[in-house]
Nucleic acid binder design. Sequence first.
DNA 1: AAAAATATTTAGGCAAGTCTAAAAATATTT
DNA 2: AAATATTTTTAGACTTGCCTAAATATTTTT
Lengths: 219, 219
Amino acid sequence: MRNTRSEENYLKAIYHISDQGAVKVSTNALATRLMTKASSVTDMIQRLSEKGLVNYMKYQGVRLTPEGERVAIKIIRKHRLWEVFLVEKLNFSWDEVHDVAEQLEHVRSEKLTAELDAYLGFPTHDPHGDPIPDSEGQFKPSQKVVLAEVDPGSVCFCVGVVDSSSKFLRYLDKNGINLGTQLKVLSKETFDDSMTIKTKEKTKVISNLIAKNLYVIIN
Amino acid sequence: MRNTRSEENYLKAIYHISDQGAVKVSTNALATRLMTKASSVTDMIQRLSEKGLVNYMKYQGVRLTPEGERVAIKIIRKHRLWEVFLVEKLNFSWDEVHDVAEQLEHVRSEKLTAELDAYLGFPTHDPHGDPIPDSEGQFKPSQKVVLAEVDPGSVCFCVGVVDSSSKFLRYLDKNGINLGTQLKVLSKETFDDSMTIKTKEKTKVISNLIAKNLYVIIN
DNA sequence: AAAAATATTTAGGCAAGTCTAAAAATATTT
DNA sequence: AAATATTTTTAGACTTGCCTAAATATTTTT
């Protein structure tokens, strides 16, 4: 009753795609996300279906069973706990954690997960503002919102981006906005929804397009 | 130029068997250690040989090349660092660390290893008294000795066993000797090499057979 | 030094997980 | 609703890492 690393990755991917609104997850969506071919996906979902981890009907896409969801949430819990560890204890920055957490999440040990959780003080959210399921699989909703939704007067800090194109990341860099940067929303223009924000260094105006692509957590 | 988990396990096994005195490591020795079949070992050794990680001649056993040794030492370094982490930070006991460290040692990230090392304060020895290679692969000799070799008057603590049969472990348990137990050698009988030792609780006499099967680190 | 025992390798097979190319089903256009 | 495009599945192949059974070397015994 134990899953391979690859099976775990598929379950996690199905969970995440479902989480973004899909009731049934298509073969192609999975292939894209997992950077593999559709035929490989078909192979694997048939295996997962036989194991009772997904509901699958040919050509109709796939959905996690309760058991499959349980497994997926356990992996996500481990992934996010390790991210907290890497950032808080080992000086990893926002963009360095993912690959490593992706490996650590597959380490199998109930005790390890439980002790790590305790060691970190039972965190409820990871460095990206995403919720960490507790040992029962329960979790609070995400704390992150796009900057465009923050009300004037609020102070928040950057935890991620929607559009991760290098063009956008260069823009942010040029404007002194990094992950972790604190900022205060001073005002919002009703005409074009542009915002005036204040960072430690200076005050600047950003367009709504920018504000919609930046995830923040409100303090 | 990147090795699979299985390849890493073979290299580590070859290193450990060599470390116990063997110049050439036999196929069977590897099969026993890795709990696999001799034919599987032959398969793998041939692959490692093609990769330049071992020197191999049919029927003559195998030896690590300098490159193979470098890889093996890196894995051992990671294994032992994780053992320190598990014991010192996550309350793992002596016998619980191995399986988990065995998984963690394969996580690939230079930064992770370096930061973990620093976080733990650059330890030179793991909880079993075995040396931890530094980032250059250099290490001090093992600190552990069998209790039988400890001079009267010395204080030491248990870090492991030679014979890990449950019969022996039960004996230790019954006599209040656990891993981590502090003890002082009071005297040694020249006739049968039995020893009088003192633990926190009481003073007792143990035979040479027992003393030869218990690893300790001298304080 | 031949025979017997043991160790090692080869040959052929299997499961997981991937791929390409082709076939089949579904969705979209016209 | 027929034609076209897209998506999904099947078929067949490859690699890794393991297995069993048989063949071949080496070592030990007599």
